[in-house]
Design a protein around this nucleic acid. Structure first.
Lengths: 262, 262
DNA sequence: CGGCGGATTGAAGGGAATCAATGCTTGTGG
DNA sequence: CCACAAGCATTGATTCCCTTCAATCCGCCG
């Protein structure tokens, strides 16, 4: 049997056997969260704090947030960026106290469920399956930035980050052009990509000069989508979770870009 | 209410509510895997390959393995190191084909379950809960190396890696002194930590000179355990999964160290 | 207006990569 | 039993990507 040479390029697919259960699990879970009040957190406000009382599971409805930690010498590492539709605190199923810090990057709307209540939902295997898929997706993202941090240079890392956020927003129908709002400071980008603020700035300038991506203020415009994609080749790819939210109204991010016209 | 200043130092704890279910889930899962034949893979042999036919879930019984990917310019990134007792391929619950490469670092013994069969086990919520805990643990490890790669220098990264493997082996009662066998080449360590083989080598020498850790061949001797631990401060910590295997026989790794006397 | 957080840019230094040889083990075969 | 090859480890010299330090600029808000 001959080797399939270029099969690595194919994006991972979900096994047919699980898709049905997955989708209904996702719908059930969505329903539960929607019953909860919509809470808001202002910029830089914590959604979860290490060691605090009762941990909760939360779902971001609007805005960006990030998980982070502080290492020994006071530097910060941003482990993951949370977009509208993302869940966070799933490991609070097990933990008596939050083990990570979650912070709002801009004004974030979210729903929250006490972890005890969430744990009871898992009695339903379909919900359980969906939660596992969410956890798997988080891991894929984690693998992806780990590989980026370890093996890509600053320029490529930034491209991959922007590409990933684009794809995630696109898949959720939050955008429909290669342009979006990125409410992260250059310092936060640096902390996420293992760089310094200064070097992020320089690299963004070079990206602009090369007309690959334009990042001005918080507006990102991807000029060469396919070129970015080729830079990300070989990195772990998340399988695309079937979109549970498809029928919902779209949550377009505000794009301060000439008043939003056209 | 005054801030608890140093609460971050406490290791995360499992919520009492879930421990019972977790343990019996783990025991059930263990039973299923033990019924399977023990397979072996020689050094550098793949346990799973990207895009191959039917994906499986597997459990390492002896030996070391690692998950890896190849990025665009041909460099390799080792995303995770698998020790005896670790599961791999849990995301094959969802995937039609394996999305990652798993390779044996030395001779590995393992049990294997077709992902379809594994999926059926999840009908049992206790097993489901345990699987989620396994996935959460993998994520914690992922967060930890991501933070290391992003914010620690070569020396500290190596210390954290050695400390982590030590702790994992220790927790599973595979060792009882700060000495163990690490069947990874310096190149593999480099690929895991985002360094080059040459720099790993130099750094190991400096660690030896400073009498922090001695790494000779594949034998690791940690001299200053507490100093290593202080270097890892602030990194995400995995909660310690209750040891399902406690009553089992211990699987001591061979330590080529003067014939194993003492 | 002053102040502040974020962005931008310059100059200098350092940690890690790269290039290049040379040892050291181990396994294989004569 | 030794020769030889292959893989891994070790070490030196040089280069470069990124950091660090420092200053300036810009937009925003009270």
């Amino acid at each position: 049997m001959p080797e399939l040479v270029s099969d690595f390029a194919l994006p991972p697919r979900f096994a047919a056997a699980s898709i049905e259960d997955l989708l209904s699990g996702g719908r059930k879970l969505r329903r539960v969260f929607y019953e909860k009040a919509l809470r808001y957190a202002g910029r830089d406000a914590p959604l979860a704090r290490i060691g605090r009382a009762e941990p909760t599971v939360l779902r971001v409805v609007s805005g960006f947030a990030y998980r982070s930690c502080l290492v020994a010498d006071g530097r910060r590492a941003i482990l993951d960026v949370l977009l509208p539709g993302d869940f966070a605190g799933l490991d609070h199923i097990f933990l008596a106290r939050p083990g990570e810090e979650i912070t709002a990057a801009n004004r974030v709307g979210y729903n929250e469920l006490p972890s005890g209540e969430f744990r009871q939902l898992l009695a339903d295997p379909q919900i359980g399956l969906y939660v596992m898929a969410l956890m798997a997706e988080t891991r894929w993202r984690g693998d992806r930035i780990a590989a980026s941090l370890g093996r890509l240079d600053a320029m490529t890392r930034i491209c991959v980050l922007l590409l990933d956020i684009h794809d995630r927003l696109r898949r959720r129908n939050l955008i429909n052009r290669p342009t979006f709002n990125l409410p992260l400071t250059q310092e936060q980008i640096a902390d996420h990509l293992g760089l310094t603020l200064v070097h992020v700035n320089r690299t963004l300038r070079r990206l602009r000069e090369q007309k690959l991506v334009i990042v001005d203020r918080q507006v990102v415009i991807i000029m060469e989508l396919e070129k970015l994609r080729s830079l990300a080749q070989g990195l772990p790819q998340p399988a695309e979770l079937p979109d549970v939210d498809a029928p919902l109204q779209r949550l377009a991010p505000t794009v301060p870009w000439g008043g939003g016209a056209k």
